[in-house]
Design a protein around this nucleic acid. Structure first.
Lengths: 206, 206, 206, 206
DNA sequence: AATGAATGAGCCTTCATTCAT
DNA sequence: AATGAATGAAGGCTCATTCAT
C-alpha cells in the first residue's frame, strides 16, 4: 500500500510538474512561442512523456488554464453569502484580499494569457469569461446592490460599477506579470490597491 | 514628374497597406500566429514584396506598433497646459474624449498587443511604456496635483491615483478588442465610461 | 512567351519529377516506409517543395496512383470496339500486348501497392477497382461473350472466366516487381505469357 | 507439477496469443502500420510483455510469418507421391482442396503480407519462396510432367504451365483478403475455382 | 521594383523500445 | 514473469526567408 501511495503521488506530482511548467512558459511566452520541448525540460520529463498526460499542445494549454482557475473565487463568494450587516467593511476586506492574491500568487497571469489568445482559443476565453470574470463581476454587483439597499452607497448602476471596481485589479494583474512595464511605470502593488480602495469606496459612498 | 510623384505615392501607399494589414492581423492573432503570407495577401502584395519594405517579421511588427503609436496624446496634453481654473471640468471632458477614442478607433488594440508580446519584445514594451503609458500617467498625475492644489480634490497619492483613473480605460481597451469576452460580459462602452467618470470623480472630490 | 512556355514546362516537369520519385519509392517500400525526405531528394527538390504541389503524404500517394492509372486501358478497349470478325486473334494479340506492358513499364507495380494498402486507403482501392480492374474485367468478359456468340469458345461463365484470364497477368505484375521472388522461382515474363496464352485460349476454345 | 505444467501451458498460450494477434494485425494493416501496442492489447498482454517473447517488431513479424507457414503442403505432396494412374482426377481434386483452403482458412493472407513487405524483408520473402511457392510449383510441375507422360496432357512447358495453374489461386488468396476489392469486383470463391478448373484443365488436355 | 516558387530549419507528434517496480 | 510509465529518435508539416525571373 505504501507503494501504491507512492506511485499515486508520483503520478500526481508528475502531472502537476507538467502543468506547472506549462503554466510558467505559456505565461512567459504565450501559446505559440512556447515549445513543448521546453515544457518537458522544465518539468523534468522527456518530450514524449507529455503525451501520456495530455493529448496535444492545445489540450495542455487548456488544462493549464482550467487547472489553475479552480481558484479562490469560491471562498470569496462564500464570505458574501455568510455576510450580515453593512457591506462596506466586507468590500474593504475583499480589496485587501484580492490585492494580496494578485501580488503574491501568479494567478494574475491568466487574464494576460486569456486575452492574448482569446481569438485563437475562443472556447477557452468563453470558459474563463463564464467561470471567472462573470463570477467576480456578480460578486461585486451583489455587494453594490446590498450597499445601495442599506443606504451605504449612492444609487449607481450596479453592474457597470462592478466593472469599475474590477478595473484596478485587472490592471494590477496584467502589469504585475509584465516586468518591463511594471518597473517602467513604477507600479507598487500595495500602493495601487490602497489608492483603488480609497478612491473607489469614496466614490461609491452615499 | 507626375509619374515620379505617382510612383512615390504608390510606394508610400504600398508600405502603408502592409503596415495596415500587419496591424489588423497582429491585433487579431498575436505575433506568432500571424502568417506573413496572410499579411501580404491582405495588403494585396506578394510575399516577397514584404521584404522590400521590412527586414523580417520582427521588424514589421515593431514598425506596425511604432507607426500607429504616434497617437493623439499631444493635443490632450496641450489642453492641460493651456488650462486655467478648476480641473474638474477638464477631467470630465477628458473622460469622454478618451472613452470615445477607445470605442471608435482601433487604438485600443495596442495595450493588448504590447502586453501579450512584452516578454518577447521588451524594447518595444519599453518604448510603449515611455511614450504612451507614462505620458498618460503623467497627464493624469498633473491633473490630480492641480486639483489638490485648488482644493477640488482630497489629498491623495497623485501618481497611484492616476493609475486608478487609467484602469477603466485599460479595461475598456482590452475587452473591446476581444469580442468573445466583450459580448460575454455584456460590456457597453458608454455605460462603462459613464460609471467610471461618476465613481472616480466622486471618489477624488474633496 | 518563350519564357512562359519554359516556366510551364518547369512546373510540369517538377510535378512529374515528384510523382515519379514518389512512384518509385512507394512501389519499393510501401506507403508508410517511404519518407517524404527521400521522395524530395530523389525528385531533386527540397522537402518543403513537395507541399507546393501536394497537400500531404496521403494526397501525394493518391495522386501517384491516379496519375499513372490513366494508363493504356483506353487504347485496348478501343481495339475491341473497332474489332470485327473472330475474337480469337484479338485475344491473342491482347495477351502479347498486356504481357509486354507489364514486363517493360512499371505499371505492374500498382496492383502490389494497392493491395498492400487497400485496408489503409479504402477509397483508393475502390478507385483502382472501378477504374482499372473492373474495366479490364469488362474487356475480357466482352471478348468471351463475343467468342461464345461466334462459336469460337465453349459456353463458359464469361465473368468468372474473365478473371481466370486476368490471373496470370496479376501474377506477372506482382512477381515481376518483386525481384527476390521473381528470381527465386525463375519466372520469365515471355515464357509466362506464352504459357498463359497457350493454356487459357486452348481451354476456352470450343 | 500440475502448476509447472499449467505455467508452461500459460507460456505457450501467451506466445501463441501474441503471434495470433500479430498475424491478424499485420495481415490487416501491413508491417509499418501495425502498432505493437495494438498487438499487445489484442493478445491481452502488456506492451512490455512482447519483449519477453520477441526481440523486436521485425522479429515478431518474421516469427508470425514463419510460425503460420508450416502449412499443409506436405499432405498434398504425399498424395502425389502415392498416386498411381491418371493424374487428371488428382488435379481436379487438388483444385477443390486448395480452393477450399484459401476460402476458409486465413492462410491466403500470406502472399499478401509477403509481397507487400518483400523488399523490406528479403530473407523472409526468400524463405517463403523456397518453402512454399517453390514446393507448390514443384507439385504442379510434377503433375503436369506425369500427365504429359501418360498422354493425358499436351506437351507444354511444365514449369511455366505450373505457374499458370497457380495464378488463379494467388488471385483468390490476395483478393479474398481484401474486402474492398473482393466486394468491388464481385468475386465468388466457388465460382472462381470452378472456372479455373474448367478452363485450365481443358487447356492442358491433349 | 515585384513576384512567388523554392528552401530548410524548427516544432509537434508518434511509437518502438527500455526499465524500475 | 509481467507491467506500463518513460524515453527519445524519427518523420510529417509549417512558414519565415531567399532568389531567380
Amino acid at each position: 500500500m505504501t507503494t501504491i501511495l507512492k506511485q499515486e503521488k508520483d503520478l500526481i506530482s508528475r502531472q502537476s510538474a507538467i502543468l506547472e511548467a506549462g503554466f510558467e512558459l505559456f505565461a512567459e511566452n504565450g501559446f505559440a512561442a512556447t515549445r513543448l520541448e521546453d515544457v518537458a525540460a522544465r518539468a523534468g520529463v522527456a518530450k514524449g512523456t507529455l503525451y501520456l498526460y495530455f493529448d496535444n499542445k492545445e489540450e495542455l494549454f487548456k488544462r493549464v488554464v482550467e487547472n489553475t482557475l479552480i481558484l479562490n473565487i469560491a471562498p470569496i463568494e462564500a464570505k458574501l453569502e455568510q455576510h450580515q450587516g453593512p457591506v462596506l467593511p466586507l468590500l474593504e476586506d475583499v480589496f485587501g484580499h484580492i490585492g494580496e492574491m494578485l501580488s503574491k500568487s501568479r494567478i494574475g497571469t491568466f487574464p494576460k494569457i486569456i486575452l492574448a489568445e482569446a481569438n485563437n482559443f475562443p472556447e477557452l476565453a468563453k470558459y474563463y469569461c463564464d467561470n471567472v470574470i462573470l463570477r467576480i463581476q456578480g460578486f461585486f454587483t451583489k455587494i453594490i446592490e446590498k450597499g445601495i439597499a442599506t443606504g451605504e452607497f449612492r444609487k449607481v448602476d450596479p453592474e457597470a460599477s462592478a466593472r469599475i471596481l474590477m478595473a484596478p485589479f485587472l490592471m494590477l494583474a496584467l502589469i504585475n506579470q509584465t516586468p518591463v512595464i511594471r518597473d517602467g511605470i513604477g507600479l507598487d502593488p500595495k500602493a495601487h490597491i490602497k489608492a483603488a480602495r480609497d478612491i473607489l469606496i469614496s466614490g461609491l459612498k452615499a
